[in-house]
């Protein structure tokens, strides 16, 4: 179980600001999101939002990251630093 929060532009594809998903990892979560919101995936690819923030930490290659019942998830773009 995880709470996924959507940004303003993602909301255009989901119609909601957040959704609760029962998924053990990010891959399963993304699969379910794609089924719920068919146009979301293309939007994420389009905006390079290939990273995920889980409980505040941005993870660049997140597909196999495990989720817990209280995970707060945001779909974001990966960072770079100096």
């Amino acid at each position: 179980m995880a709470v996924v929060h959507f940004s303003t532009d993602q909301r255009q594809h989901t119609g909601v600001t957040e959704v609760v998903i029962d998924a053990a990892n990010v891959r399963a979560l993304v699969r379910q999101l794609s089924e719920l919101y068919p146009s979301l995936n293309a939007h994420l690819v389009e905006t390079s939002s290939t990273a995920v923030a889980i409980d505040g930490e941005i993870i660049p290659d997140p597909m196999l990251e495990e989720l817990t019942a209280t995970s707060e998830v945001h779909l974001v773009r990966p960072l770079a630093g100096g």
Partner: peptide, 9 residues
């Protein structure tokens, strides 16, 4: 909340 969504640690 951070401006970009997630909560501050």
């Amino acid at each position: 909340p951070t401006p970009y969504g997630p909560k501050w640690p």
